Amino acid sequence: MSLSPLDDFPIHQAPQVMRHVATSDRNFYDRYYFNCHPGTDELMLIVGLGQYPNLGVTDAFACARRTNLHRVVRASRELGSDRMDTTVGPFRIEVIEGLKRLRVILEPNEHGLAFDLTWTGTIPATLEPRHFVRWQERVVFDSVRLAQTGRWSGTIVVGDDEIPVDGWQGTRDRSWGIRPVGEPEPPGIQVKNPGTFYWLYAPMQFDDHAILCIIQEDHKGRRVLEEAVRVWSDGREEEYLGRPGYHPVYAPGTRDVVEATITFDKIEVRCTPILPVHLMVGTGYGLEPDWKHGMYQGGEPVVQGVTYTLPEDAGRMWGMVDAVGRFEYDGQVGHGLFEYWALGPHPSFT
């Protein structure tokens, strides 16, 4: 064991130095996620930065969808001993005021995407239900996450264009715990997994409140995880909305959602994805065999850029979709994240 600057703070949770987590599970992670958009189909920026203490790696990515352009910058380095150091190549995250204001930076680089943005939460950061999945004796997910809607200020540079950001919307989350990361493991008995991931995540921002909704179901339609709360900007307590229902409409012959309805006990929200971003393309969430979150990229820091255009590269665009969403209920119109994936068998497809 060796000390790090974090050990000087009274925050220990286990008889370990702070750079070591309390579990030896290789899949432990600790991650930031942000998205930023003007509530239109012009541009969506997604940013993530994670640490993987038991793999000794930290990495980051930024993905911008602008008209027909899908541009990614990603970076990785060895984690080292100081977990307070959130720089990864040209990326950096600064916590200005915990749970309220953060600064997210991608310094100018050769890959045509950069930004300097400040986040201000519009609702209190809200702890979501614990996500726990055991499959074939192995704990696959055991994590917690906070969610928050907010506003952005600063600038984004895409190619030669510098775009001012003033009051743009977005959502963020912070999650930590266990989920599959890093290099693939031998599947063993997990080969029996039917490979289903039926998922909806929809944090919605309205004028004076937000609705946070999660639905995950298994291959038999059983609920694995759900959330349905309304959180007010003035800090009032969460209001449970009842069991959420999800009714998507797919483009013919696909699992691409063109519209959806989310129902709660007393309200019904109409959802329209207006700018889809394929989160898993280039970012490390799972498609590229040579770049996954937590994957060791070697002893020297690595920075890469990946750019695709649509419709030419449409064949690459599959997997989890993070879309700018338009949400309407009871005469109110809001925007937020409409994140969905329908992979594998599910009763709705029989």
Rank of each mutant, 00 (worst) to 15 (best):
E239P: 00
T263N: 04
V258E: 12
E237L: 13
P194W: 14
P252Y: 06
Y198G: 00
E162R: 15
R151F: 02
D207V: 11
A147R: 07
D173Y: 04
D142P: 03
I156Q: 04
S175V: 12
R223H: 02
P184S: 06
G177R: 05
A147Q: 08
G167I: 09
G221Y: 11
W168I: 10
E227L: 15
A251R: 15
G253P: 11
G188P: 13
A228L: 01
D173L: 03
R223C: 12
F206G: 07
Q216M: 05
I211W: 14
Q216W: 00
E162V: 14
G195D: 05
I178D: 02
W152H: 08
T254V: 11
V157Y: 02
I267H: 09
A147V: 14
T171R: 00
L200W: 02
V158I: 15
D234P: 12
G150D: 14
L225V: 05
Q169C: 06
V257S: 06
V249T: 15
T171F: 12
V229N: 00
G150R: 03
Q169I: 07
L200H: 09
E238F: 02
V269Q: 06
E268T: 14
I189P: 13
D160W: 03
G253I: 07
K266N: 15
I163Q: 12
A202K: 01
E217D: 09
Y198I: 03
E217I: 01
V181D: 01
P203G: 12
T196I: 00
S153K: 10
H219C: 07
L225K: 11
E239K: 06
V224N: 12
M204P: 05
T196K: 01
G235W: 09
R230E: 09
V191H: 05
V269G: 11
Y201L: 14
G182W: 08
T254N: 07
F264G: 05
V258S: 13
Y201G: 11
L200G: 06
G150F: 04
V165R: 04
T171K: 01
T171L: 03
P180D: 06
A147F: 07
L241M: 14
T149E: 01
H247E: 14
